[in-house]
Nucleic acid binder design. Structure first.
Lengths: 141, 141
DNA sequence: CGATACTTGACTAATTCGATCATCAATATA
DNA sequence: TATATTGATGATCGAATTAGTCAAGTATCG
């Protein structure tokens, strides 16, 4: 029931890419990893999966980096989690024909749906917006 | 994000114990494992955890077995899941001081709360009742 | 060319999970 | 009391997942 670190990292990376989308140059891997303390070769794997999902593009060479290719408001945390391979909600036990088992699985599924609904209701754009709010709020503290 | 098999098994066992609570003799381990195809030595471990939680008692020797010691309406799936050590909801990545990370963690926590709320809203008594409706032949009452 | 930066694939260490095994302790019943 | 029955306990195991790491390579810019 824990959110894997790679899902957290993937979401952080997408937030950074969304926040810097209007810059002319792509955002280098190092910029993201240094800011958030993510192991660089680990984030490479994750960005590769986001690229496979079609949400980022990359360019090599000096001045290379990553760009977001999808509107941030259309990117949900659920989509990102699935893109980096978060296991589906459900139950690992074999299904049995008994009523007790079936009733139970219905509840596990309901709980999983509730979980996924929350993640599906939050977009990268939402997150970037609330970060900008809380960042500017910090100036007054 | 999968419900561990041991949580499923624990809930099944508590349902069986609740459904047979009015019998004079305790319910033997073998009765439960045979009916649901649970490996017997595995369920022993699980029942031990439920005993530690104070929800079942046991007696050894022939005619021995397990008894439920708590009203089934007060036993929720969340309580059972926690008793057998289901990992807490949350995020495995280290917390960072950045706004982005904090905003994200808030969402992971919200999703985890939604998940737990569903499990907390269903009691063993609820499950036994809906099983009796859908398949009354299942229990030896 | 040479520095920079992404690409690819294999590899590893730690943890969890589901399950098994052997051995021991207690109890009812004959 | 002897014995079969039933739970208690601790060690161990194989598979899968997770979070990284490493070592080569390839493209691009100056």
């Amino acid at each position: 029931m824990q959110v894997p670190a790679r899902v957290h990292y993937a979401a952080l990376a997408m937030m950074e890419l969304a926040a810097t989308a209007n810059r002319p140059q792509p955002l280098a891997l190092r910029e993201i990893t240094q800011r958030h303390g993510i192991p660089q070769p680990f984030l490479v794997q994750i960005l590769q999966q986001l690229k496979t999902a079609g949400w980022v593009s990359s360019s090599r060479g000096s001045q290379g980096g990553y760009r977001i290719t999808t509107a941030a408001k259309n990117l949900t945390l659920l989509g990102i989690a699935e893109a980096v391979g978060m296991q589906e909600t459900g139950c690992s036990a074999d299904s049995s024909p008994h009523a007790a088992s079936r009733q139970l699985k219905r509840v596990w599924d309901q709980a999983g749906d509730a979980y996924r609904d929350v993640l599906a209701s939050v977009s990268i754009a939402d997150l970037v917006r609330s970060c900008e709010k809380s960042d500017s709020a910090m100036f007054y503290i």
